[in-house]
């Protein structure tokens, strides 16, 4: 086994273990922290794919910003098992049914790709490097890229609207 393979299997095990722990942790804060470790191992996978830019952006955006907001909310809400309402039996059955069918779909979709897994160990792809990525984004995919930025803009406007003080509300 080459060092790349060892790293790959290690990161994979870590990612899967972390993902399982996200689901099975009782404490929501622990869940979030396990999710962060999942993001880390996925970033590691990106680096193995020679996509440093994606790896670091994944870390900045997901682990650095979004998960901090998650933590923020969970810490301030102070959730624990006593205060949380218990879910009804039917809800649990429905949840496991829908989750199971999603897994079925995923397995069915990934079944045929088994022959292509070996490609993972190749480090030749350069698409993840910042230069190539930028070129592709601004030439081939410029329209979706710009549209997604409009999406962000609308989200921003929404946030500003929500955060703005209402000057002529009924109370005043």
């Amino acid at each position: 086994m080459s060092i790349l393979e060892i790293l790959f299997w290690f990161l994979t095990a870590l990612a899967l273990f972390g993902a399982l722990m996200v689901v099975f942790s009782k404490n929501p804060v622990h869940s979030v922290l396990w999710l962060i470790s999942v993001f880390f191992s996925i970033s590691g996978h990106y680096i193995l794919l020679n996509a440093q830019f994606l790896a670091i952006v994944n870390m900045i955006v997901y682990a650095g910003a979004i998960m901090v907001l998650f933590l923020f909310v969970i810490m301030l809400m102070n959730m624990n098992t006593e205060s949380e309402p218990q879910k009804s039996k039917w809800l649990r059955i429905a949840a496991s049914l829908s989750g199971g069918s999603l897994m079925l779909v995923l397995v069915a979709a990934l079944k045929d790709t088994s022959g292509k897994v070996t490609g993972v160990f190749k480090v030749e792809g350069n698409i993840g490097l910042i230069k190539n990525l930028g070129q592709v984004l601004f030439t081939d995919y410029v329209l979706p890229f710009e549209i997604s930025s409009v999406l962000f803009l609308s989200a921003m406007v929404g946030a500003v609207l929500l955060g703005k003080k209402e000057t002529n509300s009924i109370i005043s």
């Binding site: 870390m59 900045i60 682990a63 650095g64």
Partner: peptide, 11 residues
């Protein structure tokens, strides 16, 4: 970007 990534983890 690496520096930024690490700094954002400093939180």
């Amino acid at each position: 970007l690496y520096v930024f990534g690490v700094v954002s983890l400093g939180v």
